[in-house]
Design a binder for these strands. Structure first.
Lengths: 342, 342
DNA sequence: TTATATCACTAACGCGCGTTAGGTAAAGCG
DNA sequence: CGCTTTACCTAACGCGCGTTAGTGATATAA
């Protein structure tokens, strides 16, 4: 038995004027394009007060077009219960900038029973928002293509390519960061380093590899071994690989592999960094159990999130004619997990 | 020159039917009240796919009064840059359950330049969502009252009271948790404990105090000293207070105070727990720098978030006649920061 | 007195969509 | 052949509101 909320029509009836007049009065028709007498204005205001009128924002949005909604779609769970540190800085940046842009943030959480999909029943669910920021390591390229064809405004966080299309993204400059990281190792004197990682088909991984290779080119006798997944699955396997290849340093493109490398090293009784140097090519998220400050490439995920939103706003407002791609620099932090080789 | 998003009218034109037909087809008019031939249905679906049509949720909401949007409003920043652990578990739970309920999550981030406000220019900004989950230690009671009067469906995470109104909330059972925590101390033999904290006007704090007092009642010669803010502002001030009152244990309702107590203790050269026991009445979020497992009350924020969404859905669907309040139990984890007094 | 400007307001459109009464043609029936 | 039923679709209303063309009344000017 909750009373329906009063509308402009109710106010109009009570004040004895037309609904249009009510709208004009309430929107404080300042520029005086339509003059309203003070008497009527007062009557309307009083009626609105008496009824406790408040405009229905939904109706307002309908008539004004844009709904000030920025979507966030993730190909993985937005808030992973265990791995809280990963998406968080992105969302933090997204929130800040969305606030700046005077927009609300819409998290697409509907219909996530199976793999997250943008298109459901052939319909673009993102259309709920004026535009969207996309996240996730493994997007569906077909969906990205279709979004582009539809001209739906979106910005991907992370470099993602689709054959024959120009996407809009912001990405950590992994290539530059990795270049610096490997150069650091090489300048310390390392000549044979191991690269822990697979998934070479993903762009970020490619960038990391590319950066490493660029550093290698500058030192003729240096080489890098790409370790196969089996070779860092157990501590003994890794130990064997290190021995076989004569590795003096390990490079990890990934936070969990970095941790794993360190614990394996401890298991094998290798002193880090004296006997083995270890570098992470991404931000080291969890605090180390070894009280060593990690040598790693520090990303600025917060900034990346904010930038994505800024670019998205530009696209939505038509201030960006063609999709743009932006690299955000990242910084090598030299810590205590690297040293000259023995 | 961003293309305007397609409407049902566009689909209708492309399919060569009337707009009403499009609506009927897309809403999967199952009960067959209005029969549609398979041929037309296919044409419409195809046209919708081709145009990338998706219904405008704002318009849908206007006409049917619901759009599967659950709002999240926070009186503090949702994603605080530094303090990442706090809201995260809540959001994690909210996301899970919203997904279950087949709803998207809307974060209210607009107009956050000053203090976050639900009512802006006299209108309820939450009305954009079917209902909302509210968070934040210090809500505006007037706003909560007004929301209730408007009969807007919301669930507060954390017990919050408004004189003369029945709110709907889910809360950690701080009272029970604190009772257990203090009982633990008392059973260890402590008789004079200090309570670090202020902000007594807030409900969670009141609950913690109430739980402590209940435990005290069971041990006649035990007493608890409420330390004033000045008394734990510096290590020396705290040291003086501990000496003056003869404290053998400290109780902290707050994570940061817990950490501060531990570092002050270290500064003063007090062994924890041998010379001083310390208990936290909330989840200890950051890993300790002391490698001591903390004795603390463990909250289940993830579950709390999920439960809030579940209750909110019930309210929205009219399955909850009167606002309900639910306590979620929390658990005392006995760690290594407590021991019998010297 | 008639033309013109000013004032104060109303009528009406459209935002995009869900819904339903009604309309049209084909099919069934006697 | 005329009447009813059936199948399929359209026209139109209304959700609540912002906006503007237009209308009628009064005041000013020629």
């Amino acid at each position: 038995m909750s009373m329906k909320r009063p509308t402009q029509m109710d106010v109009a009836r009570l004040a004895g004027v037309s609904r249009g007049t009510v709208s004009l009065v309430l929107n404080d028709n300042t520029d005086g394009r339509v003059p309203i007498s003070d008497a009527t204005r007062d009557r309307v205001m009083q009626a609105a007060r008496d009824l406790g009128y408040a405009p229905n924002p939904v109706a307002q949005m309908l008539v004004q077009g844009s709904n000030h909604l920025l979507g966030v779609f993730t190909y993985e769970q937005v808030f992973p219960y265990d791995k809280s540190d990963f998406y968080f800085p992105y969302l933090s940046g997204i929130e800040s900038e969305a606030s700046q842009q005077d927009c609300n943030v819409l998290l697409f959480t509907r219909n996530r029973s199976t793999r997250p999909q943008i298109y459901q029943n052939g319909m673009n669910t993102l259309r709920l928002a004026d535009g969207s920021v996309l996240l996730g390591s493994k997007p569906d390229r077909d969906e990205l293509r279709r979004l582009t064809e539809e001209d739906y405004p979106f910005v991907y966080i992370g470099r993602r390519e689709v054959q024959g299309y120009e996407l809009c993204w912001v990405a950590n400059n992994y290539k530059e960061g990795s270049y610096q990281a490997l150069s650091h190792l090489l300048h310390l004197g390392h000549r044979t380093v191991g690269f822990i990682g697979n998934e070479v088909e993903l762009e970020p991984q490619q960038d990391k590899l590319a950066g490493c290779y660029r550093a290698l080119e500058e030192i003729p006798d240096a080489r890098m071994i790409i370790l196969k997944p089996a070779e860092f699955k157990t501590a003994t396997a890794l130990a064997a690989a290190v021995d076989d290849y004569g590795l003096t340093a390990l490079v990890s493109p990934d936070n969990t592999y970095f941790h794993r490398a360190l614990s394996y090293a401890q298991e094998c009784g290798w002193q880090v960094p004296e006997m083995l140097s270890v570098v992470s090519l991404t931000t080291v998220e969890n605090s180390l159990p070894f009280s060593l400050r990690p040598t790693h490439v520090k990303l600025n995920r917060h900034h990346l999130g904010a930038l994505a939103v800024k670019m998205l706003s530009q696209r939505i407002n038509g201030e960006m004619e063609t999709p743009q791609q932006v690299y955000v620099p990242c910084e090598l932090i030299v810590g205590e997990t690297t040293a000259p080789p023995r």
